[in-house]
């Protein structure tokens, strides 16, 4: 009969087999956890390539990326100037227009294209854009109809309940007119 005063050499084998079992269970747990992560076909859609050459100045297109709308807006020089003229200190979420842009293949910022996730940072509605400036809000950017948040053409919150600027997705310019959304440029 086993008792409690066994030599340690005999305990060692039990510790070893117990530890080896625990390690095995640990390894097997990973597939059980990982299977809940997005599957390969979902991951294949994690990034999208977008040709923006046919957007007209003053217009925006909405692309669907990871189940969310992404606004790509071709801003007029006047709009860019208006966005640059804003006093950053007066903003709720302090960001310059340049901080919300990324450089093109030539290394220079491309201020004509503003790319932002079209989800209001208040409670997740999709803000409205109106090229005729009727429904786009007081700051001629976007207006969220749910609770009245006004964004400027840089996607920055100016008025209303939303706490943050429209989020900028990770993206990069493959060429001057082709974007990949979902991935930062490889430096």
């Amino acid at each position: 009969m086993a008792d409690t005063t066994e030599p340690t050499r005999r305990d060692f084998i039990h510790i070893a087999s117990g530890a080896a079992s625990v390690v095995g269970v640990g390894f097997f747990a990973w597939p059980l956890i990982d299977q809940m992560n997005p599957s390969a076909d979902t991951m294949a859609l994690a990034t999208i390539e977008l040709d923006i050459s046919n957007i007209e100045e003053g217009q925006q297109v909405v692309a669907k990326w990871q189940g969310k709308p992404v606004f790509i807006r071709y801003r007029t020089p006047a709009e860019i100037a208006a966005a640059d003229a804003v006093d950053v200190a007066s903003l709720r979420d302090k960001q310059t227009d340049d901080e919300r842009l990324i450089p093109g293949p030539d290394g220079k910022l491309k201020p004509q294209y503003l790319v932002a996730i079209g989800v209001c940072t208040h409670l997740g509605c999709v803000p409205l854009f109106d090229p005729n400036d009727e429904k786009g809000g007081e700051y001629r950017g976007w207006f969220c109809p749910c609770h009245g948040s006004h964004y400027d053409n840089s996607g920055r919150i100016r008025k209303g309940p939303a706490p943050k600027n429209l989020e900028i997705p990770p993206y990069w310019y493959i060429t001057d007119t082709v974007l990949e959304i979902g991935k930062e440029a490889v430096v």
């Binding site: 990982d34 390969a40 979902t42």
Partner: peptide, 13 residues
């Protein structure tokens, strides 16, 4: 087929 081809470790489970 989705489980076997796309789901992480679906080919095992």
């Amino acid at each position: 087929q989705h489980i076997n081809r796309d789901v992480n470790y679906g080919w095992l489970l």
